[in-house]
Amino acid sequence: MPGAEKRTVGERGQVTLPKEFREEFGLHGGDEVTIRKESGQIVIEKPVSREDLAEGYRRRAEQHQALADEMADVSQEANDTLGDVPEW
């Protein structure tokens, strides 16, 4: 598997995450992670922070607003070019 590294599970069930992974995902000592089973595999995830979630919602809202603005412009352009369209 690309990006996979073998690690040994210690006597107490502990595994050290590779430094490369910790740096890439911004994990530091004391950070919490979520561990779950999925399709016969163990998945370790960095929980989404409230700030990251809020930023995602802000970006999505900006995308929706940009699309709404574009559609309004296209609609206005169509009205200007074709004139009023009859109500059917």
Score class of each variant (00 low, 15 high):
Ala78Phe: 07
Gln65Phe: 02
Ile44Asp: 14
Ile44Met: 06
Ile44Lys: 05
Lys37His: 14
Trp88Ile: 10
Gly30Ile: 02
Ile42Pro: 12
Glu70Trp: 11
Tyr57Met: 03
Ala61Val: 02
His28Tyr: 08
His64Pro: 04
Asp31Ala: 05
Glu38Leu: 04
Arg7Asp: 06
Lys19Tyr: 10
Val85Phe: 06
Arg59Cys: 02
Ser39Thr: 11
Arg60Trp: 06
Ile42Arg: 09
Glu23His: 00
Asp84Met: 05
Met1Phe: 09
Pro18Tyr: 13
Val43Gln: 14
Glu23Ser: 05
Val43Asn: 14
Tyr57Gly: 02
Glu32Arg: 04
Leu67Arg: 15
Glu24Met: 07
Ala54His: 11
Glu77Asn: 12
Ala72Cys: 03
Val85Ser: 13
Gly30Pro: 04
Ala54Ile: 07
Glu11Phe: 03
Ile42Cys: 15
Glu51Asn: 04
Pro86Val: 09
Thr16Arg: 09
Pro47Phe: 03
Gly30Leu: 00
Pro2Ala: 14
Val85Asn: 10
Trp88Asp: 15
Met1Arg: 12
Val74Trp: 08
Arg59Ile: 11
Ile42Met: 14
Arg50Ser: 12
Pro18Ile: 04
Val85Ala: 13
Met1Pro: 15
Lys6Met: 13
Glu45Gly: 07
Ala61Lys: 07
Val9Ala: 11
Met71Ile: 15
Arg59Asp: 13
Glu23Phe: 01
Arg59Tyr: 10
Ala4Pro: 02
Thr8Gly: 00
Asp31Val: 06
Glu24Thr: 15
Glu87Phe: 02
Ile35Tyr: 10
Lys19Pro: 04
Glu51Gly: 04
Asp80Met: 02
Ala72Ser: 06
Thr16Met: 04
Gln65Val: 06
Val43Ala: 11
Phe21Thr: 15
Val33Pro: 05
Val85Cys: 05
Gly30Ala: 06
His64Lys: 07
Gln65Arg: 12
Leu27Cys: 08
Glu20Val: 15
Ser49Glu: 01
Gln14Trp: 10
Gln41Pro: 00
Arg59Ser: 04
Glu5Arg: 10
Arg22Phe: 00
Val43Ser: 12
Phe21Glu: 11
Lys19Gly: 01
Met71Phe: 12
His28Pro: 03
Ala66Leu: 06
Thr34Gln: 15
Asp31Leu: 01
Phe21Leu: 12
Arg50Trp: 09
Gly10Ile: 03
Leu53Ala: 15
Glu32Phe: 05
Gly13Phe: 06
Leu82Val: 13
Ser49Gly: 02
Glu20Arg: 15
Trp88Lys: 13
Val15Gly: 09
Ala72Met: 02
Val9Asp: 11
Val33Asn: 06
Glu51Thr: 08
Pro2Gln: 14
Lys46His: 13
Asp31Arg: 03
Lys6Pro: 00
Ser75Thr: 15
Ala66Gly: 00
Glu70Val: 01
Glu24His: 13
Gln63His: 08
Glu70Gln: 13
Lys46Thr: 14
Gly10Phe: 04
His28Phe: 04
His64Glu: 11
Ala68Gly: 02
Met71Pro: 04
Asn79Ala: 12
Arg50Met: 03
Phe25Cys: 05
Asp84Gln: 06
Val43Tyr: 14
Gly30Gln: 05
Glu23Gly: 03
Asp52Gly: 04
Asp84Pro: 07
Arg60Tyr: 11
Glu24Asn: 09
Glu62Arg: 08
